[in-house]
Each structure stands twice: as C-alpha cells, then as structure tokens.
C-alpha cells in the first residue's frame, strides 16, 4: 500500500510529456523532412511571443480597470464594466477577433481620423486579443478584490484614507497576490489563443505552419512541429505558474 501511495505521488504524466517532448524534439531535429519544417516554422516564434506579451500587458490594464469598475459603487463606471464583460464573454474568441480587427478597429481609427487600412494586422491582432482577454481578467480582478475581507477597507477608511488610496495601498496588493496564479494561467491560455490570429494572416507560428503545409504538402511534419512548439512553451509556463503558486502559498502564513 505504501509503495502504491508513493507511486501515486509521482507526477508520471509530467515525465511522460517531458519524455515525449524530448523525443519529439530529437526526432524533429534529426529527421531531414521534419527539420526543414521546423526551421521554417520557428521563424514565426517571435510574432507569436510578441503578440502574446503585448496583448497580455494591455489585457492586464483593461482587466484591472474593468475589474475596479465591477466593484465600483459609481453606477456609470460599474455599468460600463459590466456591459463590456458580458458582451465580450458572450462572443466566441474567433468571432471577436474578426469583429475587432475588421470592424471595431477600423471604426475607431476612422473616428480618430486615421485610415483603417494603415493599421497593420499585427497591431489589430494584439488589440483584439487584449480586448477579449481583458474581460476574463476583469472577472479575475473582481473576484480577487471581493475575496479581501470587508474589514480591510473599513480599517483603511477609518484611518481617513480615501476609497482609491485604500484600494491602492490596502486592497489591491492583497487581491493581486491572491489572483497571481489565475493571471498566470491566463497567460498560458493566451499563448494558445494567439494561434487564432493566424486567421488575420499574421505570421505567427500557426500561420507560418499553415503556409508551409500548404506549399509543401508536408502536413504531418508541419503540424507535428507546431504542436510540439506550443506544448513545450505551455508546459514550461504552467510549471512556472505552479511553482509561483506554491511559493505564494508557502509565504502566506
């Protein structure tokens, strides 16, 4: 029984994935046809990473502002936030990306007196992903803020602090700490969803893999390489998030 317990505690699945990944990498890099696909597809990696990082950064800001709106007692602010969250969450990510890139961005640009066509697709993709993920992050921040005991706000206010100062110095530092793992998971999710921007012909690894597969008919090679690339990135990031979570947990007491 004890041996079984111990065997159960070992994350075999993780070893299996790591092994599979290493084997896949070895295979890809040593097999001529796969190697060719890899060398081609890897050129999209910087677009994938850039898109994810920029969109994530913007989504964090949108999420924080809208999350504050969700808990605000100001009816205008809170209703705008609620409206945004409900609308964005009710539309499929892919549709949202089309809509924002080809309609919303063009309209807003028009209002600002900029020619819509002048806005590069890369930028539109980043805006679309950021707006889409901002809604999820708003809900994460809202939950984080609401998880803090009411007495914290009361104590801060009783010392004469304004609502916004209490939020900034007392509530948010605790709330953000609580939601760091959730925010980390969203980064992983966003990395995966960044593949959707390939529909805008943005040359991320997915788009490059599609082009490669289409021109060489090496579907197996192209999509294996693509999957292995995503999986290796998300696994590393997930492990990081879990490590962070454990560290936060240990530091809690």
């Amino acid at each position: 029984m004890k041996i079984l317990d111990r065997l159960n505690r070992i994350p075999w699945w993780l070893f299996a994935i790591i092994f599979a990944l290493l084997a896949a990498f070895y295979f890809v890099l040593t097999t001529q046809s796969f190697r060719a696909s890899f060398d081609f597809i890897i050129r999209g990696i910087s677009i994938t990473v850039q898109t994810t990082v920029y969109a994530y950064g913007i989504a964090l800001v949108i999420g924080l502002v809208m999350g504050l709106g969700r808990v605000s007692r100001n009816p205008v602010f809170s209703n705008i936030a609620r409206f945004y969250v409900e609308v964005v969450r009710g539309i499929p990510m892919l549709v949202l990306i089309f809509y924002i890139s080809f309609v919303a961005v063009v309209d807003v640009a028009g209002l600002l007196g900029i020619e819509g066509r002048d806005i590069p697709m890369n930028l539109r993709a980043i805006i679309a992903l950021a707006v889409a993920y901002g809604a999820f992050m708003a809900e994460i921040f809202r939950a984080g803020i609401q998880s803090i005991d009411r007495g914290q706000m009361e104590a801060a206010r009783s010392l004469g602090m304004s609502y916004s100062n209490a939020m900034r110095y007392v509530i948010l530092p605790q709330a953000i700490r609580n939601v760091l793992p959730a925010l980390g998971n969203d980064f992983v999710a966003m990395l995966k969803d960044s593949s959707l921007v390939s529909v805008l012909a943005v040359r991320d690894i997915t788009q490059v893999a599609r082009l490669h597969a289409g021109s060489t008919f090496r579907f197996r090679e192209a999509y294996t390489v693509l999957a292995v690339l995503y999986l290796s990135m998300t696994l590393v990031l997930s492990a990081l998030v879990q490590w962070l979570e454990r560290r936060l947990h240990a530091g809690r007491k």
Partner: peptide, 10 residues
C-alpha cells in the same frame, strides 16, 4: 481612531 473586534490589521 477606530479599533475593531477582529483587529483588521493589513
């Protein structure tokens, strides 16, 4: 100044 039952320290 206000002192609470559950302290409410930060």
């Amino acid at each position: 100044g206000m002192v609470f039952q559950l302290f409410n320290l930060f």
